[in-house]
Design a protein around this nucleic acid. Structure first.
Lengths: 203, 203
DNA sequence: CCGGTAACCTACCACGGGTAACTTAGCGGC
DNA sequence: GCCGCTAAGTTACCCGTGGTAGGTTACCGG
């Protein structure tokens, strides 16, 4: 019954975009494990080998999705930090931008933080993102506590990154009832403990 | 050439133990994804259907591993906390016990925090562990800051749990060179920021 | 010594990731 | 306007791995 597929051909870059969009949707929807490549292909309206000609493997496709999210995340947080004056404001604005982005891009968020850990390569990419964040934050901390040992600064930075991630997961997992903690509140919870603690370090 | 397997029969509980041990080894070694059930079976010295008769599915086996780690983790941390006097010491001793356990049981640790997120059920179980930790810590915080809003206490508790987890991952991922941050140092890094920050909250 | 049960194995299915080889849409040259 | 070349797409397939049906045999109680 269905009309004979006219088999429209599409420019390579455009197809790539389509496939990435579909992959984020399907992967975050059913979960990476349960999502078959055929399912992604069907959403795009093509067949499996097309995906493989663009991304090489299922893991490659996931990696491309992660890379895209990484770029967007980096853009949005560094833009926010650039508008700040002083380390504290930088941390606050950057954190707020982080939470806000994850709010706005829920599928991308769940892909990153609940699906990416399946494949070693994607997990490594995620770890790379964290390393980026950690280094950036360690820099802020160094400005505030210039005489702390590097190892200590690194430890603190990891504390902050972990705290952000868990707060994000917490916010994301509140079912539907009980309107979840706002991005602003989450940011303040973090600053409450972390920046206050930093400020009173061996004064 | 190999001797005809005498097909020794083994009591059910004992087999279960053997299988769990093998599963932790194999899963944490090759990664849950790449580890086939046949591989686990081979280590135990039986064939696949035996595993299925005991644990139902690959996911079921993973869940059983996670449950066992959960029990051990709960035991060791609550024992440490019981020996403390006052909330601050409880948090410090509990955290230290947490890091020390993960140090001592590396395969279990990597199974929990790098392999468990593949299956929805295992991820849920891990989330359950976190909820347990969060509730416990929220209680400690409440003792210290009795007039803070519950939502705020919960946020702080998530900050701490996330920080612990990330510190653990950081410590676990330092390759081989550069002797990694000790469990005691990691604990202090956490207390530096978090407890100090808490102590100076709207005094 | 002998029956019964439960632990075990052989042989198989189905599904999904990945690929080889063919087809055809659509653009450039004449 | 027509032709051919290239790259986008397709069909049809392989094989590894999760999962299972049904037969086989070791051990325990009588």
């Amino acid at each position: 019954m269905q009309t004979r597929t006219p088999r429209r051909r599409v420019a390579r870059a455009e197809r790539e975009r389509q496939i990435l969009d579909a992959a984020v949707t399907v992967f975050s929807g059913r979960g990476y494990q349960n999502a078959s490549m055929d399912a992604v292909a069907e959403v795009v309206g093509v067949t499996k080998p097309v995906l493989y000609s663009h991304f090489g493997s299922k893991e490659g496709l996931l990696l491309a999705c992660v890379a895209r999210v990484r770029t967007e995340l980096l853009e949005v947080t560094s833009a926010a930090a650039a508008a700040a004056d002083g380390p504290e404001d930088m941390l606050r604005r950057g954190t707020l931008a982080f939470f806000s982005y994850l709010d706005a891009q829920k599928p991308s968020w769940s892909l990153l933080y609940t699906e990416a850990s399946v494949s070693p390569a994607a997990a490594a990419a995620l770890e790379e993102i964290r390393a980026q964040q950690t280094d950036f934050i360690a820099g802020l901390l160094a400005a505030q506590a210039p005489d702390a040992a590097p190892q200590r600064l690194a430890g603190w930075a990891h504390v902050i990154v972990g705290a952000c991630e868990r707060l994000a997961l917490w916010r994301g997992s509140t079912p539907d009832c009980e309107p979840r903690t706002s991005a602003a509140d989450a940011t303040e919870h973090l600053m409450d403990l972390v920046w206050t603690g930093l400020a009173h370090q061996r004064s």
